[in-house]
């Protein structure tokens, strides 16, 4: 199986839907749907592998440095710069 250098993420500059905000602006406990990330292909692939795939639903556990999110049963710590670069649509918004 060949390596897949590019993930299924789109960058937010090209596909930001209505109501999309940076992940870092959400409050703890909020649910959101992932819509893209302005990150390197490597970081996107790693997020994908951890379960942060396009349109997945995630829960914000902690904001700040680090930002902690939960997707299914996986808790993921993200540097603030990464959380700033991820675009989500809060559930109930838009």
């Amino acid at each position: 199986m060949a390596a897949v250098p590019h993930p299924s993420f789109s960058t937010w500059s090209s596909s930001a839907p209505a109501g999309a905000v940076r992940l870092s602006t959400l409050e703890p406990g909020q649910l959101a749907t992932l819509h893209g990330a302005h990150l390197t292909a490597h970081d996107c692939a790693l997020l994908n592998a951890l379960g942060l795939t396009d349109r997945c639903v995630l829960r914000i556990c902690k904001v700040g440095e680090p930002c902690i999110v939960q997707v299914r049963a996986t808790r993921i710590g993200l540097a603030r710069s990464v959380a700033d670069s991820i675009l989500v649509v809060p559930q109930g918004a838009g």
Partner: peptide, 8 residues
């Protein structure tokens, strides 16, 4: 340094 993305 790569920004940290880590499973907790």
């Amino acid at each position: 340094a790569r920004p940290m993305i880590l499973e907790l």
